[in-house]
Simulated assay, not measured.
Amino acid sequence: MKHGTKQDYELLEKLEASYLNGTASRLLRELKSQGEESLSGYKITRLEHALQSATRAWRDKADIDWVVAALLHDIGDGLAPQNHDRFAAEILRPYVREEVTWVVEHHGAFQMIYYAHHLDGWNPNERDKYKDSPYYQTAVDFCENWDQNCFDPDYDSKPLAFFAPMVEEVFPRKAYDPAFTG
Rank of each mutant, 00 (worst) to 15 (best):
F87P: 06
D85N: 11
Q82M: 15
F87W: 13
R86M: 10
N83K: 14
W102R: 05
I91W: 01
G78P: 01
P94F: 00
H73N: 09
N83Y: 15
P81L: 05
D77F: 13
R86F: 11
G76S: 05
G76Q: 07
L71G: 00
F87L: 07
L72H: 03
F87K: 01
R97F: 02
A70H: 11
E98S: 08
E98I: 07
N83G: 12
G76C: 02
L72S: 10
E99V: 11
G78T: 12
I91G: 09
L79F: 14
W102H: 07
Y95I: 06
P81C: 04
D77S: 13
D85H: 15
A88Q: 05
R97D: 08
A89Y: 03
F87H: 15
E99D: 12
L92Q: 00
H84G: 04
V100F: 08
A89C: 08
D74H: 09
A88M: 06
P94T: 05
R86K: 15
V100H: 09
R93V: 03
G78D: 15
G76K: 15
Y95H: 09
Y95L: 04
F87I: 03
D85A: 15
P81R: 05
R86Q: 15
L92W: 01
P81H: 06
L71T: 10
H73E: 06
G76T: 03
V96F: 06
E98K: 11
E99G: 11
L92C: 01
A80L: 08
N83D: 11
F87V: 04
L72W: 07
A88H: 06
A69D: 10
G76M: 06
V100A: 05
V100D: 01
A88N: 03
R97I: 05
N83P: 08
R93C: 02
R97Q: 12
H84A: 08
I91V: 14
I75E: 00
T101H: 11
A70S: 15
T101S: 12
D85L: 04
R93L: 01
A88L: 05
Y95F: 13
D77N: 14
D74E: 09
W102S: 09
D77H: 14
G78R: 15
R93G: 03
A89V: 07
L92Y: 07
A80V: 04
E99C: 07
A69H: 10
E90L: 08
P81F: 00
A88P: 00
A69F: 08
F87R: 11
A69M: 06
R86W: 14
